[in-house]
Amino acid sequence: MSRIDHITVTAPALATGAAFVLKALGATPQPGGEHPRMGTHNLLLRLGDAIFLEIIAPNPDAPPPGRPRWFALDQLAPDSPPSLGTWVARTDDIRTTVAASSEDLGPVEPMSRGQRNWLITIPADGSVALDGVAPALIEWDGHPHPAAGLQDQGLSLARLEIFHPDPQRAVVLLASIGLEDAVACQHGDKPRLVAHINTPQGIKELSI
């Protein structure tokens, strides 16, 4: 079984990503941590008991990772605007789910942040599969979900939408990894993600 684990705002710097989220949702994310293997760091915002929003950016204080950073972060210029760049789906058996996927989501790699460890799919070139709208797959270790320790600011994910010139490819992908009822797929001139977030001020939207 798979489910939405988190949605990810990519930004050239954490400060610009946090400002983007504050303006869109009226909420301030909490400190996350560093990803030594990727040369990145993040901020987090709770969207439920087992779902969160992540802001991720290159870490200027970390050495270059010697490989492309995940989530296409190396393609961002210093003045690139933050955007809803990707999303991550949780599975209890990542290798079986990867084998069933209709799209190449990349090899399964170990990753860590502080004391937390997990397995995640990362394309070797650092891209996001299916032209930027496919999820990465994640299998967490046995600790409580990261969202459980975050402050509840009254936010929750209402729905996530995929727009793609060939939405049927996205439909087939989601069915192959057990997410056919979790995300809506629609035709769009260019690939993009749109998240609709319940907030104390009503439903707000995150996208490009």
Rank of each mutant, 00 (worst) to 15 (best):
D189R: 08
Q30F: 08
G85L: 08
R113N: 01
D79C: 01
P135G: 09
R159V: 04
A148L: 05
P107M: 05
G26Y: 10
L105P: 07
W70S: 07
L157S: 01
K23D: 13
I4H: 11
P29Y: 06
A184I: 12
V133M: 14
E161Y: 02
R69I: 00
S102I: 01
M38T: 06
D125L: 14
Q168P: 00
G132Q: 13
R116V: 02
W70A: 12
F71Q: 05
D92K: 08
W70L: 04
L44R: 07
A175R: 15
R90V: 10
N42F: 10
L25E: 13
H164Y: 05
H143R: 15
L14D: 13
D5C: 08
Q30R: 13
S207A: 09
P167I: 12
P29L: 03
T96S: 08
A158F: 02
A170Y: 03
I177G: 13
P12N: 15
I203M: 11
L130P: 04
D49P: 06
L160C: 07
G106A: 06
F20S: 14
T96A: 07
E139L: 05
R3H: 12
P60F: 04
M111K: 02
A170K: 02
P65A: 13
P29W: 00
A19D: 15
E34G: 01
L43Y: 01
I138P: 06
Q186M: 13
A100V: 07
W87Y: 07
M1W: 10
I120R: 07
L150M: 14
A124V: 15
R159S: 13
K190N: 12
G48I: 04
D93C: 09
I4G: 04
G154W: 01
R90E: 15
H164C: 07
D61E: 15
A50P: 00
A136K: 11
E180G: 03
H145P: 05
T96Q: 02
L174D: 04
G33Y: 03
L157W: 04
A134V: 04
